[in-house]
């Protein structure tokens, strides 16, 4: 700051200071933030590995048992052990609800994305896009609550299942509605970013609009659309509250889609708080959290593979 006092020949020094302020300061700030985020992620991963591996190291259960056994009877105390930690019901609950949700929502999402970008781009950007963005911001408890008060009674009324309307179906539909905006916006972005050169080429050869969409735009946007689908799936896997409200929280494999069951996130959310720290049950719940973490890492990895392939193709 002395440059201000000397006054006569400040320009070189001042510009160095300015340069520092303009360039390096922001650069270092951003690098610091970036490193912090990386550290945080690594930290969470490390923490989950340490906590979650206790089931196998401390309590000597096998990975096989954890993944494929449905005997869930862990001891809830710090002194006893020897119960079962089979999480297969929860794992199956997560997989079945998410898969069904995806099956329900993917056709709608992709059709909507096409509609708002290719068929009606004007009302698409003016009405549809903002409406969908509002959906993203709605807290999951609201989805759960609507599921609980509208969907569950409706399913009960329609099919009269033995256990009421709480079911895999209800959870899948709630999840489907929740991930609809994610998949739709990412897919719409992917479609919008397809080079208009491809469109021109296709129209210039006498393609109909449907042919342009179906044979040129969708194939070119497929990696982006898949990214949206995977992001939606990741969100569905991680959702706890809304699912917990409608899935019925019953520890049994569902006999069909109208039966209640439970899933990983709902089980962790409801049991983690009351379990004795360091006990067998507590550890098993950590292992389930670790599994969710591994699944989401896997999804991110998939997205990178897809977009990496895409980059290679364009190189």
């Amino acid at each position: 700051m002395s440059t201000h006092k000397t006054g006569t020949l400040p320009s070189a020094k001042q510009s160095a200071f300015q340069k520092f302020k303009n360039e390096y300061f922001w650069r270092y700030l951003i690098i610091t933030c970036g490193l912090f985020i990386i550290l945080l992620t690594l930290g969470i991963g490390f923490f989950l590995v340490v906590k979650g591996s206790g089931t196998f190291t401390e309590f000597h259960h096998s990975v096989w048992e954890f993944l494929f056994s449905s005997d869930w009877s862990p001891m809830d105390s710090t002194t006893e052990s020897g119960g079962g930690v089979g999480a297969a019901i929860y794992i199956f609950g997560s997989i079945s609800t998410c898969t069904l949700a995806l099956l329900f929502v993917a056709p709608f999402s992709i059709t909507s994305a096409i509609l708002m970008t290719e068929i009606a781009p004007n009302s698409g950007t003016k009405i549809f896009q903002p409406a969908i963005e509002i959906f993203v911001g709605i807290p999951s408890v609201v989805y759960g609550w609507i599921g609980l008060t509208v969907l569950v009674p409706f399913i009960k009324h329609l099919f009269h299942p033995k256990m009421g309307g709480y079911s895999v179906l209800a959870a899948s539909i709630v999840l489907a509605v929740m991930i609809f905006p994610t998949i739709t916006t990412v897919a719409a972005d992917a479609i919008r970013s397809v080079s208009s050169d491809y469109r021109k080429a296709a129209y210039g050869m006498g393609s109909t609009r449907w042919q342009v969409i179906y044979k040129v735009i969708i194939p070119a946007a497929t990696p982006g659309i898949l990214t949206g689908v995977i992001l939606g799936l990741a969100r569905a896997f991680g959702e706890a509250l809304a699912v917990a409200m409608v899935i019925g929280k019953t520890r049994a494999f569902p006999a069909n889609i109208l039966s209640p069951t439970n899933n990983l996130t709902a089980a962790i959310a409801s049991d983690m708080g009351n379990s004795a720290t360091g006990g067998e049950q507590n550890m098993a719940l950590w292992t389930m959290a670790l599994l969710l973490f591994i699944i989401s890492i896997f999804f991110i990895f998939l997205i990178h593979i897809i977009s990496g392939k895409e980059k290679k193709k364009h190189a």
Binding site: S195, K200, A201, G204, G206, V216, P219, A220
Partner: peptide, 19 residues
Amino acid sequence: IELRKRVSMVFQQPNPFPK
């Protein structure tokens, strides 16, 4: 559509499809 099949266009920027 029929017209463009009989009278087709090649553009300034080469624009092969990503296929």
